[in-house]
Write a protein that binds this DNA or RNA. Structure first.
Lengths: 366, 366
DNA sequence: CTGCGCTTCTAGAACGTATTAGTCTGCGGC
DNA sequence: GCCGCAGACTAATACGTTCTAGAAGCGCAG
């Protein structure tokens, strides 16, 4: 009746912790029998099995996780360690979508995801070591791979099943899921080129990331074949730097006629800057985002973007991870996720007519 | 030299699992000494302590988590169970921000967050029971509280330290962090009323949620004092239903002059519908979002919204949870997070001149 | 009636650590 | 010179399960 107040601090002995012996006693069997019943092992008559399970259910008893784990049971936990400023995580739709997809697949197996945000790559590797030593996780997902990233090799050495997202380099110590950023970037440039754009700005992401490198490589690779001149400005993926880069690109003379952004957040920031500077989109400058989300679709004008199912990317990663976890450390394999598809929206158009005697000059040399 | 191929499936015995006995042997002491050293307990000379720690560090050895846990150690894990369609999680900026804030505070204590997405509330309670029985988590965060939600009482009975977000009802079995939705909604209505709006639409969230209820209550409470007539349409928080509700509100006759949305995603969807229907914002209809994010700030026009620091809400929740976890099951307390602040942007203005005997008739039925 | 195989069940030894109750050494005080 | 005591360290047990080896009961073939 009165609020549960009489219980002093820390005196909340709500549950008198059950053990398998209690269940055994109540069911009139041995602890071994309880173990067999709970784990669905053969060697028990249906009658006793049911009796045991009934008692266990009634008391809501489950084997103490730690004790099972001590006998080598899996922990049913998959770990993700992120080394980014925590505040930026919530801003990137990518991460939330990916995590949702990953978790939704893992949930089916009763596996939960353990998330830890750390300061830097050093702390990150320390966590991998710790988790490995403590047997805390059954598997790992590695994100934000950098060039010459030491983590895959470390994790492989530690013997933890793991999947990297976005890496397919050589050598490849871990199974990976990757997206063909190269082809995607080529697609964007081909599209812009076909509209008539030659002078293109590129607001790139963190250049030490592998996928950023692949995009930059693609730009170089099509330079001569398409005749595109691309100006890349590196950023840290933040909206602030995306806006700043846009300001620089739009202030330059001659000005590029199209800008490609490595993320949706930056594209939207850039769109804001253009509007603010009185540069009209798409008639003065075309904008393309390398990532799609509600941000780009609901912008004004809606932004032409590479779209992909990030949620599905998460589920695919989960599938691969589950495979690695059950197969053991086999030969690492690279699974390719579908290449993002270009969705043309209102932010792209042919470049403004060039200054010069003939308007059609722009199309010349096509 | 050759790729690690000769090792058959599952034969990757990379690490020959160290135990405390190994460390003891190498340091020339007993296992007890190792335990004392690792856990910083008194009873060892500084010399031997250092020797032991050096060996442990060298081999990257840590106590096997399960074994420690068996002796009653904490698991350093905080759990969150979500019962929502996984796909919607990534769309809501709220969740990602909150989780980032929560994790960033917990990381400081070396605590990680365990996330599980389930189908429905029933599965959710099952997970709470399971995690409790398995001693899997040290604490829980309960989100999306519903009216008469059985979960707080269940979790309290299970004896798991926990914090609920958004509940401050009576009785209150758990410590909670709550936001004054009532005051916030009153603020919105006062603002709209001061602009001259009387007939207002409200695209509400899931009505079984406690915070939705508090908002609806606020609407009723100011009905007479402000003279506002509010039309609430319940939705499931999805952009689709937000758009549909907007369509209904804008199609009604007489039409409301302002619409309040219970989330930013729905507000943006509604803005899209208005544009599509040729209803101009804010001259024909004003739009207010109950939640703020990059979505609302970058929309066109930017949407007037209640803004709050969701990241900070996460850190505040973490603080409370840590307190509960260390204090044990004390009297539950309700901590109030700052009330969201209304940020006026371009989506709100005075209502269009009323139809009447005057020249403004022209605008009628537009 | 003995012995064998099958099913059903159980005793007891792990698993790797933390802790309790020591043991052993050296040393100061009487 | 012996007692007692503090400091440094260790042996052994407990934690709660799982698993191996084996016991008990029972039917049945020989």
């Amino acid at each position: 009746m009165a609020p549960k107040k009489q219980a002093g601090p820390g005196a909340g002995q709500a549950a008198p912790r059950l053990r398998s012996t209690d269940i055994a006693r109540l069911a009139g069997v041995s602890v071994s029998a309880v173990s067999l019943a709970i784990n669905g092992r053969p060697g028990l008559s249906e009658a006793t099995r049911k009796r045991i399970l009934d008692v266990a259910d009634e008391l809501n008893w489950r084997p103490h996780r730690a004790a099972s784990a001590l006998k080598g049971a899996s922990s049913d936990v998959v770990g993700i360690v992120i080394a980014r400023p925590a505040r930026t995580l919530g801003v990137e739709p990518f991460f939330a979508h990916f995590l949702s997809g990953l978790q939704s697949s893992l949930s089916g197996q009763g596996i939960s995801t353990q998330l830890l945000i750390v300061e830097d790559t050093e702390a990150q590797t320390a966590v991998y070591r710790r988790w490995a030593a403590e047997h805390r996780v059954d598997g790992l997902v590695l994100l934000d791979l950098e060039v010459d990233d030491p983590r895959p090799q470390l994790v492989a050495d530690l013997g933890i099943p793991a999947v990297t997202l976005g890496s397919h380099g050589n050598p490849m110590p871990l199974t990976s899921v990757w997206v063909d950023d190269h082809a995607a970037m080529v697609g964007i440039l081909q599209y812009l080129s076909s509209l008539g754009h030659r002078h293109i700005g590129h607001v790139s992401g963190i250049t030490s990331f592998q996928h950023t490198q692949r995009r930059l490589q693609a730009i170089q690779d099509v330079h001569t074949s398409l005749g595109t001149e691309v100006d890349s400005i590196p950023t840290d993926f933040s909206d602030a730097q995306g806006a700043e880069a846009t300001r620089r690109l739009l202030g330059a003379d001659p000005r590029c006629t199209a800008i490609v952004y490595d993320s949706d957040v930056m594209a939207i920031a850039g769109l804001g800057v253009a509007t603010e500077m009185g540069v009209s989109v798409p008639s003065d400058v075309s904008l393309v985002s390398f990532d799609d989300s509600v941000l780009t679709t609901m912008a004004h004008p809606p932004v032409t973007a590479l779209t992909r199912d990030t949620f599905a990317l998460g589920t695919l990663t989960a599938t691969e991870l589950l495979r690695v976890m059950s197969d053991g450390p086999n030969d690492p394999q690279a699974t390719q996720a579908p290449t993002p598809r270009l969705v043309v929206r209102g932010s792209t158009a042919a470049p403004p007519a060039e200054r010069g005697p003939h308007a059609d000059d722009a199309l010349e040399g096509r």
